[in-house]
Each structure stands twice: as structure tokens, then as C-alpha cells.
């Protein structure tokens, strides 16, 4: 077989795979932007409409769900970064008894994630009176073993000379962390931030369990309830809602594609 034919076959294969990969999403987009009458049959000249989006928006409290999800992901990320920075600095730069044992316990959380400890964590939330609150959804994730691990690895690469120079000038610990370590680890913070936000934006089972009212429910749970109702919600409207709830991440990804991919990579390389 000639090299030219090989290359052609590979190109055809690549595009075929890409089209198959885009088909489900393209189908959802197509239905969401067409009247319900066209949801089950294709017509190239079918009228395009955006009315499915406001229809979905008024049929369920999506504005509240959006607010809840945004509060949830920002509060989780904020606490994760503060708590993680402090712990990572201790593991990277301080000598103390029990260091490796403690670090092993932190790493353990990367495998046995709070995700699967739903029964016990639900009882804890009930004891704390945090069932059906945004804090209740977020608390189990606020100390992230993964964040501590990533930040520690980054802090270890920062030359000790910088550290010592700052100390010689009489910088306090707080100053040292905020002015030397945090700025130098900025790419890691961004990488972890994107990973954390997309993970908790998409999280479902735990929020489903721990919430039972509109006031606390995040988008994923809201979407699930909206699309499960047997009240005859049209497919085109469900698809519009589905796209709507994914849109911020999807748009963020399309605009910051390179950063997204690099962040996942940076977070993945251990």
C-alpha cells in the first residue's frame, strides 16, 4: 500500500471518528434549536428557534439552581485553596514528627474519596444540621488531598534560596507564603481551580442525597428532576435545559481550550 493511500485512510478514519464523537451533542443542539414538531424528524430547512430556552427557564427555577451551583463551586474552591496551601507548605518546607505518616493519610483521600462515603457523611450532616444546605454539599470536599498533593509538589520545586532570602529580610511566615510561594505556584492554582470547578459543577449523587429543596439544589440535581418529570415536558425543551446547564463550562472550554487541556495535564501528571 502506498504511503499516500495510508495517509488518506487515516484522515478519513480520524474525521469519521470525530463526527461520531460529535453526533450526540450535535443532535442535542439540533433539537434544542428547533420547534418540538421537528424533534423526531430531520429536515434541513426546519425553522430555527430559540424559544425552547426561555420555556425551560420558566418551567423550573433554573436561576436559583445556577446561583446555588456558583455558590457551591466557588466556596469549595476557595476553602480548598486556603486549606491546601497551608498544609502543602507544611509538608514541603517544615520538618516535624509524623510527617510521612500524615502525608500518607492525605494521599489516601485521593483513592477513597468522600464520593463513596455517602452513608456516613449523610449522618454527619444530619447531626450538624447541615442537610439541605450548600455548606452540607461542599464540606466533605473542602480539604482536598489532591490539592495538597499538587501544591506540595509545586512548592518543592521552589528554590530554597528564595525562601531563605525572604526570611533573612525578616519576612513573617504569612508574608513568605503569600508573597513568595503563592505567586510562584500560580499555574498550579489555575490548573487545580479548573479541575475542581468542573468536577463540582458536574457532581450529582451526593448533592442529590443531601438536598431536598430548591434553595440548596445545584444545577445537576435540578436538571435531573426537570427531565424526569412525567408532566410531558417536550424533548426539545429538555435538551435546551441540558445545554443551558452545561453551557458555562462548555463556553469556558471553547474559549480557554488550551488552558483547560494544559490544566488537566498539569493536574494529572503526578
Amino acid at each position: 500500500m502506498s504511503a499516500g493511500l495510508d495517509a488518506l485512510l487515516i484522515r478519513v478514519g480520524a474525521w469519521a471518528l470525530a463526527l461520531i464523537w460529535l453526533a450526540p451533542l450535535a443532535y442535542a443542539v439540533w433539537t434544542a434549536f428547533h420547534p418540538a414538531a421537528y424533534e423526531t424528524h430531520f429536515a434541513l430547512l426546519a425553522p430555527i428557534t430559540v424559544e425552547n430556552f426561555p420555556k425551560a427557564w420558566v418551567q423550573a427555577p433554573f436561576a436559583r439552581y445556577f446561583l446555588n451551583t456558583i455558590l457551591l463551586v466557588t466556596s469549595i474552591l476557595g476553602v480548598q485553596l486556603v486549606v491546601g496551601t497551608l498544609a502543602a507548605f507544611a509538608f514541603a518546607r517544615l520538618q516535624f514528627a509524623g510527617k510521612s505518616g500524615l502525608f500518607a493519610l492525605v494521599l489516601m483521600q485521593m483513592m477513597v474519596m468522600p464520593d463513596i462515603l455517602i452513608v456516613e457523611n449523610y449522618q454527619t450532616m444530619r447531626a450538624l444540621g447541615l442537610v439541605d444546605t450548600i455548606a452540607g454539599i461542599g464540606l466533605p470536599y473542602m480539604a482536598s488531598g489532591f490539592a495538597i498533593f499538587l501544591l506540595r509538589q509545586t512548592f518543592l520545586t521552589i528554590p530554597r534560596e528564595l525562601d531563605e532570602a525572604a526570611r533573612m529580610e525578616g519576612a513573617s511566615l504569612r508574608h513568605l507564603i503569600l508573597r513568595v510561594y503563592v505567586p510562584l505556584a500560580k499555574p498550579t492554582y489555575i490548573a487545580f481551580g479548573l479541575v475542581s470547578v468542573s468536577a463540582h459543577w458536574n457532581d450529582f449523587i451526593w448533592p442529590l442525597i443531601v438536598t431536598n429543596s430548591v434553595e440548596a439544589r445545584p444545577l445537576t440535581v435540578g436538571l435531573s428532576i426537570f427531565s424526569a418529570t412525567d408532566s410531558g415536558v417536550q424533548w426539545s425543551v429538555i435538551n435546551a435545559a441540558t445545554l443551558m446547564t452545561s453551557a458555562p463550562l462548555l463556553l469556558g472550554f471553547l474559549i480557554f481550550q488550551r488552558q483547560f487541556v494544559q490544566s488537566f495535564l498539569r493536574a494529572g501528571i503526578k
Binding site: 458536574n202 445537576t220 462548555l250
Partner: peptide, 8 residues
């Protein structure tokens, strides 16, 4: 597809 919520 990676960016979409699994529920979506």
C-alpha cells in the same frame, strides 16, 4: 464530552 456533566 469530557466537559459536560455526566447527568447532561
Amino acid at each position: 464530552p469530557t466537559v459536560l456533566p455526566l447527568i447532561a
